[in-house]
Design a protein around this nucleic acid. Structure first.
Length: 111
DNA sequence: CGAGTGACCGCAA
DNA sequence: ATTGCGGCCACTC
């Protein structure tokens, strides 16, 4: 049907996908926040699962963990994601690949 | 249909 | 400061 790609039929997953897709350039969101906005602040892990099985076209590189850094699992490694974030003018910490959430954390209410 | 799993989060030694 | 453990919920095979 319309959900051609691995769309994760769950409603929760679709909301997560929508939020990630709406993350603007140069901004990031945390798994916990996305999960909370999707309806379950405790389902942060599910967000990661959706990222793995969900639509690969979404800017998952703009999604970071509570520490403001990319977690494992990203295709290529944190170096790849770090590069993608830097490509969006996002400043990362030296080698920890940690970004300033207070500066880049975005929320749909801010839009 | 059932069980396992995970791109997390928070807390405890 | 670091390391380890459990819990929690939805998705996939």
């Amino acid at each position: 049907m319309s959900l051609t790609a691995r769309s994760s039929g769950g409603e929760f997953a679709q909301r997560v996908c929508a939020l990630v897709e709406q993350i603007p350039y140069g901004r990031v969101m945390t798994y916990g926040q996305i999960a909370a906005l999707a309806g379950n602040g405790r389902a942060a892990r599910i967000v990661g699962g959706i990222a793995h099985y969900g639509n690969p076209d979404l800017p998952w590189h703009r999604v970071v963990n509570r520490h403001g850094g990319v977690a494992a699992g990203f295709p290529g490694g944190r170096l790849v994601q770090k590069r993608l974030l830097e490509d969006e003018n996002i400043v990362l910490d030296d080698d920890d690949a940690i970004i300033d959430l207070q500066a880049y954390l975005w929320s749909p209410y801010e839009a």
